[in-house]
């Protein structure tokens, strides 16, 4: 019965990702074009110095955290759907085990990722 809410948040997460990921992609991949129009300052976006510049601001902290949490949720919900559809011989218990393993794996990633993002923020501001 909780599946309706899982699904609802899957779609909501998609909307959040859509907004935040366009920023992330604009900065990381379309930087050439954006620089051409003078929207971004020139420089290699992948150099360590630039990474630290971004890690320093609160805006990026929020963007990265939002993107990571919602993307992990969205991705792992999708993975669970596909696994459940592909294995209809699985028992109810098996499904619960799969669901929880995916949840715990995603949670682990989210904790590690949040740690990295926050540590990067602290490091850049030090």
């Amino acid at each position: 019965m909780r599946d309706s809410m899982f699904w609802f948040w899957h779609l909501m997460a998609a909307i959040v990702i859509l907004i935040v990921l366009s920023i992330h992609f604009g900065v990381m991949h379309l930087e050439g074009i954006l620089q051409m129009f003078g929207i971004m300052s020139a420089g290699d976006v992948r150099s360590y110095a630039e990474v630290l510049v971004r890690a320093k601001t609160v805006a990026y902290l929020v963007i990265y955290l939002l993107l990571m949490w919602f993307a992990l949720y969205h991705g792992f919900y999708g993975l669970r759907s596909i696994i459940v559809e592909m294995s209809d011989k699985m028992s109810k218990a098996g499904e619960i085990v799969v669901g929880w393993s995916i949840f715990l794996f995603g949670l682990g990633l989210a904790i590690y990722g949040s740690y990295v993002i926050i540590a990067g923020f602290v490091l850049a501001n030090a």
Partner: peptide
């Protein structure tokens, strides 16, 4: 995305 988290995690 999973790989990305670990790779960019090196920034710290």
């Amino acid at each position: 995305f999973i790989l990305h988290i670990f790779i960019t995690g090196q920034k710290i």
